[in-house]
Design a protein around this nucleic acid. Structure first.
Lengths: 338, 338
DNA sequence: CGAGAATCTGTGAACGTGCACAGATTGCCA
DNA sequence: TGGCAATCTGTGCACGTTCACAGATTCTCG
């Protein structure tokens, strides 16, 4: 309501009480539980809809010493927020879970590393009762802040060095499943374009690749690149192809990388999937826009968000048994590129 | 802080007052303005950092009768939220503007059309002082709710039938700029694949095309298609090429349409940009994925979010002069396809 | 020097809610 | 019928802040 200058005053619990002919204590009990006669309950419900009563959040928060809000904190460069195909799904999942529990989701996007203390100040400002934190940083300083504040949080992803709850996918297992399937479909010389090896997601995917190949693993078939990006995929594929022209399968660390790789393969005259099978990771919008459509690993983005939110809510309910690490299933989606 | 059970009590304005040897009124004046001696001001600032004081939001909101929060409402199917390349930028822009003004952004994503009353209830619940609404619906019922509540809002996009502030881009002007530039680079027979003529964005882009050509405008060079989609672009380009084989430039109504058109041109043996120059619209992920990369019009997504947020803030400040419609510049990005 | 303005400070009252407590009513059983 | 428990209700206080008001001090100028 706020700034509606001459707007009608919002009705309070007093108005309801007067309309129902009871005291505000009884109204409060109808809303929050406690002994109240059936007769009074009915009269109050009638009065509530009559005067259009909506409880005042601020007053309730003040007396309850909680805000009924959970922060959704993205501590990453803005560019990641815009490009990461999963972040929307994570938000959506978290938001759904939180709003079902009558919590609000408050978004905080923090760009530079220096702004850490802005987040810290925010978290300690009492704006939120807890937080879902999306951050892939190693040794994220937010972790310390959170611990000091004893604020219920859950991380999405599992940057090493953090303590507290986190939710992620089994990157290693999913990568292993993908590569195993590639082998089963007859591929014999399988390479990998490995991105972001400084993050656990990147290194775990490489580990899965290696594990699936076992003795057949050949380090020369791994091409490391910086980012989960299209351009890196294209460049990496070109280099890999020079080194290993006899390649017949590629596991790309992300869909964007896979799309880049497919372009490079086409430029080199290879057909996908006839000559070379390509598999991506993420099951993002890229996957269905390429032709042929990508075989890939589905990131349960909404599930991640939902699970993280649920972990925060459980802590808020005083649940001591919250597991510190939760791994969600990331199923393989087999389409046409392999 | 909320549920930290044995956590130390948060310090209040009373603690600061005691530590500084003044009354809470003086502390409040330091925080909110008013007469206060330099000596007292210093002592209070020292005391604030000493006891680690952070104002309690709920108490402040209660007495001020405002929440210091603005809703970011996406009233669209979840799929749009996930796929629309602009929505992340809009969020980011809105968030930046709001947090600079010390407002929080509260995200609300509403999926089905039936949930309209959930949004209505939310908006009337006093959780937010205003709202940025992203919605392309015609006659969005939220519009009515907002009007009834007299809630300060701003729409991103300009669905017909809404009243109140909105922010969009100058589709007509941008299209005109693109086509003018095409002419300046020597193109003489320029066609357009015009999509979604039933929306204002589509018809405005066509109007800009027409205006840029002036007397040189030839209706036969306009090929109308249904959607801003790849397939429509390809089919439209094929038809247009049959009608006007001497074409040397194409303005496509979106990047996806442009990508389809480029495929059709290639299939017809035309080189881009040597034989035919192609320009798209949106500066979406398509633009940098095609080869050659698309010349296009950049959608200022962050700017749209920021402008919408600013419009809401202006209304909250009681600014009566808020324009109902704001058009943002959409700059032309010249890459390789023309 | 005194009146009035300007500057500074403390106190009380709200904001709307939840909760503890005490009081009132009823029901049950010895 | 008296006593005790169970059920129901009203009142006062607290949450932490802002704001209006009144009182206190200093400054300005006739």
């Amino acid at each position: 309501m706020a700034a509606s200058p001459s707007g009608p005053r919002r009705s309070t619990v007093h108005d309801v009480a007067r309309a129902a002919g009871v005291s505000r204590g009884t109204v409060s009990r109808v809303l929050n539980g406690g002994y109240v006669s059936e007769q009074a309950r009915e009269a109050i419900h009638r009065a509530i809809s009559e005067v259009g009563y909506v409880p005042n959040t601020a007053a309730r928060n003040l007396v309850r010493q909680r805000t009924q809000a959970v922060g959704f904190i993205v501590h990453e460069p803005h560019s990641l927020f815009l490009e990461d195909p999963n972040i929307g799904g994570i938000m959506l999942g978290a938001n759904t879970t939180l709003s079902q529990a009558d919590y609000q989701m408050v978004c905080v996007v923090v760009d530079t590393a220096r702004d850490t203390d802005r987040v810290a100040r925010y978290l300690s400002g009492g704006f939120v009762d807890g937080a879902v934190i999306v951050s892939a940083r190693h040794q994220d300083p937010i972790s310390d802040v959170v611990e000091r504040l004893r604020l219920p949080v859950a991380f999405v992803g599992h940057p090493p060095g953090i303590s507290g709850a986190w939710v992620g996918i089994d990157n290693r297992g999913a990568a292993e499943a993908v590569v195993t399937r590639l082998r089963e479909t007859g591929r014999r010389r399988i390479g990998m374009i490995a991105a972001a090896l400084d993050r656990d997601s990147g290194s775990d995917r490489l580990a899965g690749f290696r594990a699936a190949l076992g003795d057949a693993f050949d380090p020369a078939l791994v091409e490391p690149v910086d980012l989960y990006a299209f351009a890196d995929g294209a460049a990496g594929m070109t280099r890999l192809l020079e080194r290993a022209p006899d390649l017949d399968g590629v596991f790309a660390a992300s869909d964007a990388v896979a799309a880049g790789a497919m372009q490079a393969l086409r430029a080199a005259g290879r057909r996908v999937p006839e000559d070379v099978g390509v598999v991506g990771f993420d099951d993002s919008a890229w996957a269905t826009r390429t032709s042929p459509q990508l075989s890939t690993v589905h990131q349960p983005a909404e599930g991640l968000g939902a699970a993280a939110a649920a972990a925060v809510l459980a802590q808020l309910d005083g649940d001591q048994s919250v597991r510190t690490g939760i791994l969600l299933d990331a199923p393989v989606v087999w389409r046409d590129s392999a």
